[in-house]
Design a protein around this nucleic acid. Structure first.
Lengths: 210, 210
DNA sequence: GTCTATATAGGGATAGAC
DNA sequence: GTCTATCCCTATATAGAC
């Protein structure tokens, strides 16, 4: 059952990291929660960081998939909202990374590089999509505006979870946060849209929040 | 020289927290850096958190000042950029808070409440300013759009420092980051502006970055 | 693979002399 | 006010028996 214990460690770690924050979850806590000994945990993973790195690999794969552009015809607005949803769900699954992002990346160079690669892919992807919208005449924006908008989308995509954790007093997080995050990005794009689409989006967006 | 040691502890702590991150700076490190004993440090402050709380109070005062709306006539765009600059400089001076915001607030309820109060003030202030721009005809936006925009401004204002730390590889931070942060907020507002102002802002903004 | 027991290290914090 | 010495605790990680 080696494989199974290893897998359970990863799953439990992820759940506890997400719930309590990675710095506040010790290897002993994880072992306790699983009902195994700390020694056993260290038989399967060399270090706590080793666990984090394996979880990061899964995060990487998950987001990587979600970022894949559905090729074929140029995506329209509906396609974009769908993809946005997929990406945000991926991030949400590994929200512990974002909660202490600066510290986690500061203490692990490899992860910092890998994260930078993901960010670059996301940036390229967002820019492509926005350019597509401009070409399709759905949106009006200069090259500089597209660039700034893409960066702001990345910023919001990176920190909407932390922002929700810090804003408002509601303790429990969940799907509502996801919708709020998506809503934020929509409203970032809205003002660049043609009046018809802008109006439609504002209507649609209203269903996302509150 | 009691007063002076106390003050030096606060100043040095702030500098070290900002440079290395609060979780990575121990009370012993601070004492070492100052050339005093750990015991002496604990004579002046009951705990590490006590130091953080005193620094937070200064942050609170600093941001509070910067958020004061210059009353009298309704502010124009120039006034707003100036105030934005003031606010961001305040935040920058206490950037350690933002680097580990979620953790710091999660472990200290009082600070969480006080931070929430600042956020509410900032939200009100931003909304007021935006409404002023709409009334002045400089900007076009629905009530919902203003609300969403204000929230996104808050999000960017809260995490632009972390975003820069995590994006791009440049190690050293400084004034360039400040300008990038301000630029981001400008570009959040730009698409809502009348064409004349939007164009002018894009020109102005170009000097802020790169 | 899994356990018990323990090494090692470091951080926060205090006692008591000066 | 300041120092030296030290306590206490918790976290990561390892050794060696089962």
């Amino acid at each position: 059952m080696a494989r199974q214990t290893r897998e359970r460690i990863l799953e439990t770690s992820l759940a506890m990291f997400n719930a309590q924050g990675e710095p506040n979850v010790t290897t002993n806590h994880i072992a306790d929660e699983l009902g195994i000994s700390p020694g056993n945990l260290y038989y399967h993973f060399r270090s706590k960081d080793d666990i984090v790195e394996h979880l990061f690999a899964r995060y990487e794969a998950s987001v990587g998939d979600a970022l894949l552009l559905p090729d074929g015809r140029a995506p329209n607005l509906e396609d974009i909202w769908l993809q946005l949803h997929l990406v945000f769900e991926s991030l949400w699954g590994y929200r512990f990374l974002y909660r202490d992002l600066v510290d986690i990346l500061a203490r692990n160079r490899k992860l910092k590089l890998r994260f930078a690669r993901i960010m670059n892919r996301a940036s390229t992807s967002a820019t492509e999509l926005l350019r597509g919208l401009v070409r399709a005449g759905v949106m009006r924006a200069s090259a500089d505006e597209i660039h700034a908008l893409a960066e702001n989308i990345l910023l919001v995509a990176t920190f909407w979870m932390s922002f929700d954790a810090v804003r408002g007093g509601k303790a429990e997080a969940g799907e509502a946060d996801l919708n709020r995050g998506i809503h934020r990005v929509m409203m970032l794009i809205a003002p660049f849209l043609r009046d018809a689409e802008r109006y439609h989006l504002n209507t649609l967006a209203a269903t996302y929040v509150r």
